[in-house]
Amino acid sequence: MTLDLPFIWAGLIAFAVLAYVTLDGFDLGIGILFPFGGNEASRNLMMNSVAPVWDGNETWLVFGGGGLLAVFPLAYAIIMPALYAPLIAMLIGLVLRGVAFEFRWRTRRGRFLWDAAFFAGSLVAALAQGLALGALVQGIKVSGRAYAGGWWDWLTPFSLMTAVALVVGYVLLGATWLNMKTTGEVQDRARRVAMPAGIALLVLIGIISLWTPFLHGYYYHKWLAFPAILYTAPVPLLVALAAYVLVESLAEQRDHLPFLAALALFVLSYIGLSISFYPYIVPGAVTIAAAAAPAKSLAFLLYGAVVLLPVILGYTIWSYWIFGGKLDPEAGYH
């Protein structure tokens, strides 16, 4: 039996991107919520709830980008120039919010600057990722082995919609994370944000889901034509279930369930996207098989991934476990 290496790698890269979106999602969400976090002690707590893990979360983005270069170099070479402006904006946003984690403890007079950088950087990164996602779903012009579109192709009504949706989604993740990790006033505030954010996200997911099939006949046939709809119907049904759990658990003031339900919404939306993409990696233009690097490259990196990814997951879970439970407002090393 021979392994379908490109398919395995498409799955691994997809997993890395999903890990990034969900993990960095909640800490970007906290950045977006930061200015609305109340007094300084509350905001310190918000930041400290993600300070030990944000760096690991962001490493999934490096893995997604580096992995794409390694195993789908053609896709990397087409997508990166196509999404040039949003990607550069995302990187600059991530620079600003990343340094804020340390910098804001190193000054008192200038702290407000880094608090602003933490917020603005997180918001810009989230918007840019949403724009990039929307542009990718909408399709990229390709000629030969290169991007062939213009410099503003990424900016469309659809990509603006996905950008707003991703920001709202990250806010929901951040709010439900805080609900899980904190008590008292910070938790109360997080709950008040989570409910409207959850409802707004569901509406936006609905709009995007109904919009997507009409972008391309290709998506339409996958989602709405019979009999394909029999295979794809479970996804929206599960979204409805997750939505129900989210709203119920928030109403019942549960600690963990809202975060898990928000994660489920992300995972299901992501599965929906993957169904739309497959078998393409650049929708409508380049398939997974066509973009794949030679088998020797795929196999070489797969040996490492088989051994190292479980180890990485192991110590990542260990690290989350160490910093698990409700946060102690007095703890910190700064």
Partner: peptide
Amino acid sequence: SDKVGPVIGPMMGYEVMS
């Protein structure tokens, strides 16, 4: 990236993972 990715990409992948 397109031309050299199959060679240097996996090494950078190992850098990220290890």
